[in-house]
């Protein structure tokens, strides 16, 4: 490969040396793990014993009727859907307000972006304390029974409480992306439309929204993926409890794999999540070429 008329082509060799460490590290630590994960999902290994059997697709068949897995999957889907709705609508509203500001636009933008700088565990733990210390005080003060204890302690409110905390941080980046998207809209169109007598809602519906579609797609996919694969917030705040009310798929995989000796089954669950995420990514790539008034 590197020999050209009997003499070494130095440039080709340098290019190859540039690429070699990446190829090795990535194959060894990433691709190899993915293949192992798929392989383990077809065994009955508990993660500790030396020997195990290959059992084909039995784990997947078992998952089809596994109540805990379905519960977990439906919680995860709810979590991701709620996160998308809250984050996208709130971020869009904030971005529209920010965009309409004349002064302090950058300053307020940096305040809203700040949560994105923090570790998700820090955010989770701070809110955990706030829920535990502040909510009961407020609840008693207002006489609302539902708020008399930490919302994380009740099966009814725990999941939504975690979603809100996640939204608090997840909204930061979409706001900034939306503001950037709004700035690409030519101002003349708004002027022309107000001469034509369009009201604010019509302006939003027929000018802003079509221009925002590429940005909307980005934020939608980002938030959806982060919702489906979320781990840190739930693990740090509730660890799946109370009574499995917040046991999203990542936490279930973690528990099965490391704590309950159902290593192979956990891998099968991960493979199913993999299929869901890969399909979403594929659709995203297909869509991102089309739609919207502008494409970058």
């Amino acid at each position: 490969m590197f020999y050209l008329k009997g003499k070494i082509d130095t440039n080709k060799l340098i290019y190859f040396m540039f690429s070699l460490p990446a190829l090795l590290l990535y194959s060894f630590f990433y691709i190899y793990s993915v293949i192992c994960g798929i392989y383990y999902s077809m065994t009955d290994w508990n993660g500790i014993d030396i020997s195990y059997n290959i059992i084909g697709l039995d784990n997947f068949r078992r998952l089809l009727t596994d109540e805990r897995f379905w519960n977990s999957l439906s919680i995860t889907v709810y979590y991701a859907a709620a996160l998308v709705v809250i984050v996208i609508s709130a971020a869009l509203a904030m971005a529209l307000i920010l965009d309409s500001l004349v002064r302090f636009k950058t300053f307020f933008k940096s305040i809203f972006f700040f949560p994105a700088m923090l570790s998700s565990v820090t955010v989770a733990l701070i809110w955990d304390q706030l829920f535990f210390r502040a909510i009961p005080v407020i609840g008693k003060g207002l006489g609302i029974g539902l708020l008399s204890q930490s919302p994380l302690a009740s099966t009814k409110t725990a999941l939504n409480a975690v979603i809100l905390v996640n939204s608090w941080q997840a909204i930061a980046l979409p706001i900034v992306i939306f503001v950037a998207g709004l700035q690409t809209i030519p101002k003349e169109i708004y002027e022309a439309s107000s001469i034509d007598g369009a009201n604010s809602f019509q302006r939003f519906r027929y000018i802003t929204l079509p221009y925002l579609i590429p940005t909307l797609t980005v934020n939608f996919v980002l938030t959806l993926k982060s919702g489906l694969t979320v781990f840190d917030y739930v693990y740090a705040m509730t660890n799946g409890g109370p009574a499995k009310a917040t046991e999203i798929i990542s936490v279930l995989i973690y528990k099965h794999g490391f704590q309950e000796m159902r290593f192979a089954l956990a891998n099968a669950e991960a493979v199913i999540l993999f299929i869901i995420i890969a399909t979403l990514s594929y659709i995203q790539i297909k869509i991102s070429g089309k739609g919207g008034v502008i494409s970058e």
Binding site: Y30, C36, G37, T229, L273
Partner: peptide, 14 residues
Amino acid sequence: FVPFQIIMLPLVKQ
């Protein structure tokens, strides 16, 4: 395209 969860378990073994 790969969620972290799929490599999480084999990675720790490796």
